[in-house]
Design a protein around this nucleic acid. Structure first.
Lengths: 336, 336
DNA sequence: AGCCAAGCTGTTAACGATACCAACCAGAAG
DNA sequence: CTTCTGGTTGGTATCGTTAACAGCTTGGCT
């Protein structure tokens, strides 16, 4: 049952050659006489030999491990799933495999997962940083692990990042709600300690300020993490004496939660596009970003670093698009 | 820049002890005098030492690698994302990290990814098998890699599997459509070579047969893989001289595609529940399964195998639930 | 005092692969 | 006939860690 896997030594014995020759054949590096190679290949097939990449990596300590690590909040978030998928595609093209870990927005878990990854000598990490400082990555970075952030910047860490202009996108979307006659506009987001939510919140406040509207703390909800929490927050806002006439949901999950209770006449804009947005009544206006493009770009950047790019870290900003489907264009009480 | 990572030897020199002592401290195994341990720990911190799990694994060849591999079709499928998330949670509880790979339903890619994983000596694999035989896994299995299938069985491979009764669930759902007066019922699915779609298709045909309805090939569409393809298939069916009055979509993705064009009076049932199903008009009736429960069960089964469970392979069947929200209960032309 | 046990630490040899260098062989050239 | 060249092959050391065992203290017991 617990058959032990054959090693190069076994193959060498079977083929009557040295392990060096087996190594050469298995890796197709350097010249081996065709007849010898054929004998080795036959032995490989006969024994079911597969190269042990663990031993290989140990010997080639200063070479690449051909493993990258991806750390996301939560893969069940469709945005993160798209990131994971795109990152793995690039990794595969580059001959690497990918470890995946979820932080669940918990900085401690994030650190532990990253430590487990670096202990395996990953060549690089793609991160969607959780809240909190990421200085703890400096030693790993100093030892040569390349790091690229995607979706979010990592304050306190000097690395590449591929993001969108969250601030500008939300500001523009909220400004549009104001244009359509809304002055009581609600905001739902997770903690502003997460970079994206901080930016989105800033954009919301900036748009209000630009319109001369005082922000009402009762309409600004931070730290909302789940669909049901979002639904409850919306219900709470609507029960206010002076309820909002428009709402901005900070991501897809919160949008789904809000949509379970939001009435159809509440103007609504969601950050992130989603599959059935056009099928709802009214169709949902969204701020769309392209997670595949973000992740592909981040992964290419990572592999460039892995292969020796030492230029100063840069932040790539990808575009967003406000897709007007109706819910964000519902007129408010101050409509012209 | 390319600072090399410190090894136990470096730590040993710094602390004035042998590498064995460092090893003992780092792993907390056996007794080391508190003062010595403190010195070693200080050296570890000073140098930023981290144990090299690659070397460790090589030395401990007959121990576990504490890595598992997950192979899915595509993580952007929310069902698979939930599977991945749940599997990683269990892995983490068990002190393992997880490699992830996508087959994109391509058997060759599936093989390559699996080979890359086994070369890293994963302790086990969780698979959603693509189409085609999986005999190629036998050598890996013989060498001790544990394998568990989730969502789909793997014909030709004697392993554990955690699935739902796809056949029975679809048969019941289609029978219900018949009860509501439908006789022209369309079916959308990917290739029946993928186990789940084969089962779902069989269930559909069995329900028709039981109702004495002849299956019309024009209403049975296999090999539909994308949303747009599903939409086109629906458009095509509706243009028939004798169009369907009801439709069953074989998974979430196909349901989304179909819903972009299906008129509101077409009775509709989707395999897999989804976030906004209740918000559509009419609300969508679905056959729900619990991907988290499936994956959690599969992962527990895998770790049981990894830790020595040698009982015969078993297939765990988890329940499905027909959630009647309206679209599946629309009356057909033969309603009583 | 003498001896043993317990606790602590070090030495050596692997794990499976590859880098580096040396050795071998045939045939060509001098 | 000798020397050289180029293509092939093998030997040895090593990557960073730990298993197995050996050796050294120290203190307790008779």
């Amino acid at each position: 049952m617990a058959a032990t896997r054959p090693t190069m030594k076994d193959v060498a014995a079977e083929a009557g050659v040295s392990t060096m020759t087996v190594s050469r054949v298995v890796n197709g590096d350097s010249a081996v006489a065709p007849r010898t190679a054929a004998r080795v290949e036959a032995a490989v097939r006969k024994l079911g030999y597969q190269r042990d990449d663990v031993a290989r990596q140990l010997r080639r300590t200063h070479q690449l491990s051909q493993i990258i690590g991806l750390l996301v909040d939560d893969v069940t978030d469709p945005f993160m799933a798209a990131v994971a998928s795109a990152a793995e595609d690039v990794a595969r093209q580059r001959g690497s495999i990918m470890l995946i870990g979820s932080s669940r927005a918990d900085p401690r878990r994030e650190r532990e997962v990253i430590a487990a990854f670096t202990a395996r000598r990953v060549d690089g990490l793609i991160l969607t940083p959780a809240a909190g400082s990421h200085r703890f990555l400096r030693p790993a970075q100093a030892q040569g692990t390349k790091i690229v952030c995607v979706d979010r910047a990592a304050p306190g860490l000097d690395v590449d990042a591929v993001v969108v202009d969250n601030f500008g996108a939300v500001r523009a979307a909220v400004a549009q709600l104001v244009t359509h006659g809304h002055r009581r506009i609600g905001y739902l987001g997770d903690t502003p300690k997460i970079w994206t939510f901080g930016e989105r919140r800033r954009g919301y406040l900036a748009a209000l300020r630009a319109a001369g509207i005082a922000a009402d703390p009762a309409l600004v909800r931070d730290g909302v993490r789940t669909g049901p929490e979002a639904a409850a927050a919306v219900t709470g806002m609507l029960a206010l004496p002076d309820p909002p006439t428009a709402l901005l949901a900070g991501n897809e999950l919160l949008a789904f939660g809000a949509l379970t209770t939001a009435p159809g006449d509440l103007a609504f804009v969601a950050f992130d596009d989603f599959a059935l947005a056009a099928r709802l009544t009214p169709p949902v206006t969204v701020i769309a970003q392209d997670p595949v493009a973000l992740a592909t770009s981040a992964a290419h950047l990572l592999f460039a670093r892995i292969h020796g790019d030492v230029s100063p870290p840069r932040t790539v900003v990808m575009p967003t698009r406000l897709i007007r489907r109706g819910s964000g264009e519902l007129p408010g009480p101050f409509a012209a």
